[in-house]
Design a binder for these strands. Structure first.
Length: 281
DNA sequence: ATTATATCCTGATCGC
DNA sequence: TGCGATCAGGATATAA
């Protein structure tokens, strides 16, 4: 489900609501999850932030070393925070009254002094892990929105890569955060065909890709990410970037830029890629 | 060393 | 309505 903008949105919302809360009790309901996470019991939330596509809960233990709970939502993971004010769903929903956690996709419950955090995940690809050191869960790739990520760096990475440009942008060991939706969107914005190989890209194209990467991700964050399911009946906090998607999931629809060509869908690495054959070369 | 493929899971949707 | 096939916003172990 979530790529960088969605995970950033979740982390910000949870940080605002949960910072300072004391973790009283953890219930692990899915055997796939390690019970190591119980070691975080008793900690107080110092902050919640995003690292790559992970949500990181930093827990303080007085003078003792901090510990970290790390959630990766993968395809279908959701985090729901509930307190006296209501429930906040990481898909962007605010549910005013009684939240029902009685579903089989519930994989873990974290009870705090001020509320409760539920981890749902229907496909069970998601992970919840416990770590004592930041380096143990740090992604290998660079953060695309960080100040020290430069167009020179992207240029160097692309020159080394021998694969297609779309596959490259989805590699988390080079640049973190881009998934299947934003890969198509970034290539569209840069005017680069997804069929291109990295080593054929010219300097000017790489500069466009760099700008598109940062612009698409930061715009999506500004709109609280992309929400596919539930956005119709969501209240307020729901992501709205799905209305700004230029190509993703728009097969056979007219291109919003040239207003001529129809958006095409092809399959690359068994994933859907969407592009405009006119605007992208 | 790098890059394709198979695999982990469940549920919604599609075509017959 | 039923049923099998196909499709999902991710990442990794394994194979080539």
């Amino acid at each position: 489900m979530p790529e960088l903008p969605e995970v950033e949105t979740v982390a910000r919302q949870l940080d605002r609501r949960m910072r300072g809360a004391r973790l009283r009790d953890i219930t692990v309901l899915d055997r796939k999850l390690s019970t190591d996470v119980l070691e975080a019991t008793g900690g107080r939330i110092v902050r919640i932030y995003r690292s790559g596509k992970q949500v990181v809960f930093e827990l303080g233990f007085g003078r003792a070393a901090p510990r970290f709970l790390v959630v990766h939502l993968r395809m279908t993971g959701r985090l729901v925070w509930t307190d006296q004010k209501g429930s906040y769903d990481s898909e962007g929903m605010m549910t005013n009254d009684g939240f029902d956690a009685s579903t089989k996709s519930l994989r873990a419950k974290l009870r705090f002094d001020r509320g409760e955090l539920f981890f749902f995940d229907t496909r069970r690809f998601g992970t919840l892990t416990h770590h004592s050191n930041v380096s143990d869960f740090a992604p290998r790739g660079v953060e695309p929105l960080s100040a020290d990520f430069t167009t020179e760096q992207l240029h160097a990475m692309l020159r080394r890569a021998k694969q297609g440009v779309k596959a490259f942008f989805m590699r988390q060991d080079r640049i973190v955060g881009v998934g299947n939706i934003y890969a198509s969107e970034i290539l569209f914005r840069a005017g680069v065909s997804p069929k291109r190989s990295c080593h054929t890209l010219k300097r000017a194209e790489i500069e466009k890709l760099y700008a598109a990467l940062r612009k698409v991700l930061s715009d999506a964050i500004a709109h609280s990410g992309t929400t596919f399911s539930d956005y119709r009946d969501s209240h307020g906090k729901s992501g709205s970037y799905q209305f700004r998607l230029a190509v993703y999931d728009r097969q056979d629809e007219t291109c919003r830029k040239c207003r001529q060509a129809k958006i095409r869908r092809i399959v690359q690495q068994q994933r859907s890629t969407y592009f405009c054959p006119t605007c992208q070369r």
